[in-house]
Design a binder for these strands. Structure first.
Lengths: 152, 152
DNA sequence: GTGCTTGCAAAGCTTTTGCATCGTC
DNA sequence: GACGATGCAAAAGCTTTGCAAGCAC
């Protein structure tokens, strides 16, 4: 984790941004909760535990900065709040999500499922793909099992 | 178009909702601008041309209703506003989008690109897929051509 | 009359912005 | 001392809600 933090620090410095204590605290929260799809408010509350004096605006500004630098990705599952995901180290593309419509759980898929589809889009529609967002909505394994139990 | 409207009317009646003049005007706007990815505000302004007395809240309520009935899909391209797309007649799945990061144009793809990927997700992750959202971000054909021209 | 629907205004949310202050080089 | 970064509060969207009035059956 320290390694990833150092890396992010360098990325910031490369663009002459500083890794201030507030920014560091924010990044640490994101690193600790890497797969949790936190909203800005979530991040704020967690950062506040480490650095109580931080303001919500700073969290927003930091998340926007990290987003510009492609360190985090901003996603939206349609519930009206932006969520922030740390990019996997060296990941070229955004990962995918499985959102359960029963329990709301979000699972991540880091496999590249879209290689062929992207090629098709580039060839057929002449669209130069830079990134993608893929989300499946449905019923997760756990909820399927629960449904079976309750009917038996 | 009248045919589609009749169909929607039946769908509403089946759930004991009425196709009021306001709702009809809203649906007509959506039918006329089927591929335009209108925001609620856009819809409101267009409906107002036909039915000036309508309120924004009614448009929101109608769009929510249509969304529940799966007549329209609510999408979010990450700019903070919800957009509404009429489902294609008989379309089982949501269609896909190509969003140009240069000019903001949104192109639709109605081809089913994800059949294989869905099967993989169901088999490998045991996730029962009900719907999906797939958006590619990149540079559209037109902007690619413009870029070439300006460098030559 | 009962119950759904509407328009208006107010409220609620998330997110952004203005501005004085603070810290760092 | 300059300049970026911060915290707070205010403002700015977009969306939802409360409520009285309207309409249909």
């Amino acid at each position: 984790m320290e390694h990833r933090l150092e890396q992010i620090k360098k990325q910031l410095h490369a663009q002459s941004y500083k890794l201030t204590p507030q920014r560091e605290a924010t990044v640490r929260v994101l690193l600790e909760r890497e797969t949790d799809h936190l909203s800005a408010e979530d991040v704020y509350l967690l950062v506040k535990e480490k650095a109580p004096e931080i303001g919500l605006a700073t969290v927003y500004r930091t998340l926007e900065l990290l987003s510009e630098l492609k360190i985090v990705d901003r996603i939206n599952f349609g519930d009206g709040v932006s969520r922030y995901d740390l990019r996997k180290e060296g990941a070229e593309h955004f990962h995918h999500h499985l959102v359960c419509t029963e329990c709301g759980a979000v699972e991540e898929i880091t496999d590249d499922l879209l290689g062929d589809v992207e090629k098709l889009v580039e060839n057929h529609w002449h669209f130069q793909v830079k990134d993608h967002r893929l989300t499946f909505h449905g019923i997760c394994k756990h909820c399927q099992e629960t449904a079976i139990e309750s009917t038996s």
